[in-house]
Each structure stands twice: as C-alpha cells, then as structure tokens.
Design a protein around this nucleic acid. Sequence first.
DNA 1: CCTACTGTACCGTCCGGACGGTACAGTGAG
DNA 2: CTCACTGTACCGTCCGGACGGTACAGTAGG
Lengths: 167, 167
Amino acid sequence: MRRDELLDAAECLLTEHGTGALTLAAVAERAGVSKGGLLYHFNSKEALVRAMIERLIADFDRLVAQQGHDSYGKNYVAATFAAVCGGQLRRWAVVTGAAGDPALLAPLREALTRWFREGLDAEADPMTAQVVRLACEGLWEIATHAPAVYTPEQYRDLERHLLSMLD
Amino acid sequence: MRRDELLDAAECLLTEHGTGALTLAAVAERAGVSKGGLLYHFNSKEALVRAMIERLIADFDRLVAQQGHDSYGKNYVAATFAAVCGGQLRRWAVVTGAAGDPALLAPLREALTRWFREGLDAEADPMTAQVVRLACEGLWEIATHAPAVYTPEQYRDLERHLLSMLD
DNA sequence: CCTACTGTACCGTCCGGACGGTACAGTGAG
DNA sequence: CTCACTGTACCGTCCGGACGGTACAGTAGG
C-alpha cells in the first residue's frame, strides 16, 4: 500500500523537524510523490493527520494483542516496552502533529481511556495496577524526550520489575 | 508585569484551540494588546514560545521547592499532584506550541532529565523511586488527555500511595 | 524626554487546496 | 482478439489567503 509510505514520510518529518515541517509539499517530496499524488490518497491535510492517529492506535492495539501474557495489564506493559525499546517513538510526534486542532486528538483520548481501564477489574491489586500503567505512560515521555536516562539493560530491568508488580 | 499576561493569553489559546490558533494576531487580541505591543515584548514568535517554555520550567521548579517533604522525590510527587489537581495543565499545551521546532524543546528536555535524576541516589529503593517518577510523568498525560479517568478522591489516594512507596 | 505602548499600513512568503490532464491496468461485450 | 470504457494512481500548475514580520507615526504617563 502506497498509503502507508505516505504516512511514514509524514511521521519522519514530524519526528525530525517538528510540526512546522509537516506541509503537504514536504510530505509529498519525502515520499517521492507529487503534491497531487498525496492529495489523491488524503484529500486534505486533516485527513492525513487523522489517518496517522488511527494507524497509531490500531498498531498499538495489535502490539498488545500479540503479547503472550496472562492479563491485559501485563500485555500492556510488554507492548509499551516493545514499542519504546524498538525505537517506535512516533507516538509523540504524531500527537504533536494533531495538536494543531484539538478535535483531531479525540480518537486518541478515547484510546487512552480504554488502554487505562481495560482489564483493570481483573487485577489483584488495583492501586498497584494503576501505578504500573501510569509508569508506562511516563515511559513514553522519558523515552521520547530524555532517552539518555536509561540504558537498554535498565529498560529490561524496569520491564521485569513492572511485570512482577502485577503478580 | 504585562509580559506574563501575554504569556497567559498564549497559553489559553494553546489549551483551548491548539497550536493552529497560536498566531501573533490572536495572542495580541486575547491579551487586549495590539500586535505591535506584543512584538514590543517578544520580538518574534519564537521568542514568545521560548519564554513560555522557560516560565513553565521555572514555575515547576518553584513548586517543587515549596513542598515540605524530606526528599526531592516526595516533593516532586507532591508538586506534580499540586499542579495536576490545581488545574495547571498548561504543560501539555505549551509543549505542543514548541513542537513546531524541536530545538525549542531543548530546555524542557534538559529540565526533564534533571527532574528525573535529582535526588535519585538518596532514595532507599532506586527501582521503586524510578517507577514513582515515571508514574508522575504518566499522570500529566492522563490528567491532560483523559481527565475522566480519576476522581479527586482517587487523585488523593494515588498521591498518598505514591508517597508511601518512597518510605 | 523616555518608556511603553497603540494603530495602521504594508510586504514577501508559504501553505492548503482545487483543478485539469496523463498513464495504464483491468474488464467485459461483441 | 479488440475496442470501449472504468477505476486507480498519479503529475504540474495555479490561486487565494493567512501569517510572520517591518516600519513608522502618534500618544499618554511618569
């Protein structure tokens, strides 16, 4: 699908040069496509950003589902580390892209609420489970903005520790 | 200081209508000032955003220093909850404003690293201390994007719990 | 007389979006 | 086999508008 390559190009621009660089012309050039070609797939800039948000949510849901633990909470932790350590840090970038118009963030807000509530009743210690999920959120922030804070080994230790907190 | 009112106006626009609404004309109008008057204080849009970032960092540092606990970690937790529960959620908005150019975020990245490392050696259980700080980061995210997740009482419980984790 | 503005008029640039046209790979009728 | 037609995937150009920034004349307060 050429569509995905266009979304990739948009994400790259966002992560590398910020929202100011996210123009239709720049995305098109990055993807090796003309501006007209880009607008064929996404008939407005808003549609492009919306698609980025939707793909982001779908990808993470898929990642959670792929983990093989025995609770949603643990799968969520594992998916977070898989994404963060795998260098898939586009989340922040995509979100800033959508920050131009708060309405575009609505699907993400909804997803965030879902990620936070799902399977919480099944947890043995709800308070600890919440702390773990909050820590996962925080991890995104740190990995994106202050990656020097943790080494790969520390990430592994942290993951193990968070998973053990859910036992 | 009139300068602060201008920064307030810019933050309001950012939180309410997103980065797309942050134009010099709009900020001036919101603050009841002419565009010329705004440019008298901040001679470019970049300078305005930079000032917002700097004020954000300085304010949070002050808030941490105002807390009366016996460790930096606890003061950090208390300051986070004070800011989040007090409705001071401009952090996210300000950051998106600066996301137009990643270079503007450098001071914030530095502050984030500092907030994360300061007093970590003095903690009895470093791993737990890190989890607590990560959870604080996550709290910003949740409070900003999914405020319905927690009631005021849950915030209080969560704060008490995080503080107790540092004992 | 200086500081802190106001107000207006304006410029150059950039950006989103619209539009018309092109190439080409099917596909189904006869 | 072929001709007509359809849908997909683009290209190149153009325009209106918004935005950042400049310039400058004026003014009210201390």
